[in-house]
Design a protein around this nucleic acid. Sequence first.
DNA 1: TATAATTCGGACAAAATTATCCTTTATTTT
DNA 2: AAAATAAAGGATAATTTTGTCCGAATTATA
Lengths: 144, 144
Amino acid sequence: MFSKACEYGIRAAVYVALQSLEGRRVSVNEIAEEIDSPVAFTAKILQQLTRSKVIHSVKGPTGGFEIERTDMDTVKLSMIVHAIDGDNIYVGCGLGLKECNAKKPCPLHDKFVAIRTDLKKMLESTSLYELATGLEVGLTYLKR
Amino acid sequence: MFSKACEYGIRAAVYVALQSLEGRRVSVNEIAEEIDSPVAFTAKILQQLTRSKVIHSVKGPTGGFEIERTDMDTVKLSMIVHAIDGDNIYVGCGLGLKECNAKKPCPLHDKFVAIRTDLKKMLESTSLYELATGLEVGLTYLKR
DNA sequence: TATAATTCGGACAAAATTATCCTTTATTTT
DNA sequence: AAAATAAAGGATAATTTTGTCCGAATTATA
């Protein structure tokens, strides 16, 4: 569904949010360690998330990644996915046809659009805060 | 969503079904031409579909690919996807965690499972015949 | 029986994705 | 000011996916 990069990106963002709720700023090394991802690759992904304003980075000693409490509400899963995978998930025909639309639909068009609309709704309505708080309360898990 | 190979595979299978409804057996060249896909790569995919009994192949002159009318009903989209992409779509955590299940769910678990269940239902309930007949009647399109 | 048409199968090539390494830049602390 | 720490960025490598090529096997037809 998501690319590996996107999976790491979501996990990383959720971890940053969780730690920011505790008032902690976290380093790439800690993030990669905690979400069980390759460090250098994760660093690249964090750069993308920083450039697209999903999280915030600070250089130098005591630096690292963080996200403000209010941003945890405005940042939706859809933004993270878009920052890393672009609009691949939203755009295009399920069967890979260039010209596929309501007027000239592929055989799977309607059924595919239905699923994708649900996915889109889900991504657009799920905030980083929502994901982080489940972890905080111990309802959900990120490691392994 | 699906891999390129899978997209080609579905389009190819639907085209074979459509032509079989007309009593025609079709060659790799014709299929690739009609569904606008790379010939040699399509040949590989047709081999997979043949091995997994989604379609039937005949060697030699007048040979080609075909599918029996009754099989168009039993062959569901899910079988094609499984033959080419394996169980990637069905199995595994949305965030790529190895251990993610109802007991120890990742933060996205429930929402992800919901979407995937819908996708699964759609794939398992959509037959090749259904896809082919839309084309036949001119309601849907495969080219381009 | 020879020829031609077709799928099958293996080896290879190109492109995209995933992943690593190392240097530079910014910033805090000593 | 120097040293140390952490992100940023560029170059490169490994792996997977996508795609090509070519010879072998099969079979209908002349």
